[in-house]
Simulated assay, not measured.
Amino acid sequence: MKAYIRPMLARDPDEGHRAATPLELLFDLASVVAIAAASVGLHHAIADAHALDGVIRFVMAFFAIWWAWMNYTWFASAYDNEDALFRVLSMVMIGGSIVIAAGIDPLFKSLDLTTVILGYVITRVPLIFLWLRAAMADATRRQTCLRYAVGIAVAQIFWISLLFMPDVSMTLFLGVFLLGVLIELAVPALAERSVNTSWHRHHIIERYGLLTIIVLGEVLLAAYIALQSVFGETTDMSLIRVAVYAVTVMAAMWWLYFSDEDHLDDTNLGRALSWGYGHFLVFGSAAAVGAGFAVMVDVVTDHARIDMQTAVQSVAIPLALYMFSLWLIRDRVILRGLASFIPLIFAGLVLVTVFVPVGFGWLTVLSIACVVIRNALARAQGLADLGDAS
């Protein structure tokens, strides 16, 4: 029988068969709720012709969701001992994610961050105690753990102070918010500059892959909305095309992400940070693609204040960002020659559709072509390397 409280010792980074735990999957489920709420907010903002405001609010909400998830994920990879206290504190953080989700609607409607900040702090404060527990048990990395605890505490004091900030201009408000983001991003880089935590590379890759699947689910949700409309209030066959295109683009996005090559090929701190931080673009853009397809449904059913070309742009821009982000965090590092540039090239081609009035079917064609060409060139490179080695 497991003890209720155990020392929070560092886990073995080379542990075999390390996989996501049921508790981590439950944390992901809470993140699903918040991500879905942020995507809905972006969807309605674009459909109501408030795209810029919607994108700003979406980025703010998504940062809170992603950073809470990311910090929990990396801590659990290094120190999850599955004792009762770890589980209880994890449940508190899961509750915080739900509070964040509840605050997203006020954020989109009136830029009211109160509930989002409250939920965010709830997800972060328990992590301070977890890092202090790790500091007591892991003498080798005690300094690293204490830096995390202090850094997270300082960041939460900053966010709470925002609740008492007087009314200021939008520009100043965004500047202050960006300062808070920079403080948060600096904590891991400063904490691990001397001794790294013992996170598990394959475990981290799996955890990021699981969240990628979650955000791709937003595209499937848009396809569901389209088909629901077909069999509901309208029989416009354009909705069937939207659903087919959404599922096809989602499949291409999945195939691009889950390539044969390892995403994170090195445990070097700089590489780990750029890969981990760069996933903000991967996750955010994937969720935004789903919102864009939902906007297309609104345009077809006359529930939007924008035209179809604008709806196409609402898919094309995040889709291009998704391709660019995969080039940034993976292909430019692990591939060579032309193969390493394929996602970047196709990101540019997708962006062309923003300026040239084309049907949204072209986004599907470009997505499929990117997968086929990228993977063919990557496979050819792999075979060439194998031949050289022999």
Rank of each mutant, 00 (worst) to 15 (best):
D331V: 12
D105R: 12
V282I: 10
A155Y: 05
V247Q: 04
L377Y: 06
T364R: 03
V356G: 05
A304K: 03
A251V: 11
L29N: 05
S31Y: 03
I122H: 12
A339W: 01
V32S: 11
L52G: 09
F62R: 04
A311C: 02
I128Q: 13
M8H: 07
V354D: 09
V365S: 02
G337H: 10
R124F: 09
Y322C: 13
G232K: 01
F58P: 09
R336K: 11
A291N: 08
G348Y: 12
A19W: 09
D12T: 14
A20N: 11
L146A: 09
L377K: 08
I213H: 02
M136R: 15
A139V: 15
V312S: 09
A76Q: 07
A68S: 15
S314G: 02
V181H: 11
D388I: 12
A135R: 13
D53P: 06
L162G: 12
S325A: 09
A155L: 08
V352E: 08
F158N: 00
V215P: 12
G103M: 04
A34D: 02
G151A: 02
A380H: 10
I373S: 08
G292N: 01
E82T: 08
G151M: 09
L118E: 13
I94L: 12
I342V: 15
D28H: 01
V247I: 12
A288R: 02
A76E: 11
V195I: 14
G217P: 11
H50V: 05
S238H: 14
L377A: 08
R133V: 05
T144R: 12
M60H: 04
I213V: 08
I122M: 06
I240V: 15
L85P: 01
I213M: 10
T248I: 13
A288H: 04
S340P: 02
M70A: 08
V150I: 11
A68D: 10
L326D: 04
L319M: 11
V55F: 06
T364Q: 03
E233G: 15
F258Q: 01
V215W: 12
A76T: 10
F164E: 07
V32L: 14
E218V: 05
V88A: 15
S367K: 03
R11Q: 06
W69G: 09
L216Y: 03
W69M: 09
R18W: 01
G54R: 05
L273G: 15
A189M: 14
V247N: 07
W275N: 05
Q309C: 03
A272S: 15
G284S: 14
V92L: 15
L89N: 05
I213L: 07
A49P: 06
R147I: 02
T140E: 14
M136A: 15
K2F: 13
D83N: 12
V168L: 04
M91E: 01
F108V: 13
W131G: 07
A30V: 06
S285A: 10
F173V: 01
G361Q: 09
R379H: 15
R6G: 05
V121A: 13
A389P: 06
I94Y: 00
A36D: 02
H303L: 14
I334L: 12
A149Q: 03
V299F: 00
L220S: 10
T73W: 00
G151T: 00
L127N: 07
I56L: 13
K2Q: 11
I35S: 10
L281D: 00
T235N: 15
H202P: 00
V242S: 03
D307H: 08
D138C: 10
W66S: 00
G151E: 04
F58L: 08
F58K: 07
A84H: 14
L174I: 09
V371E: 07
L256T: 10
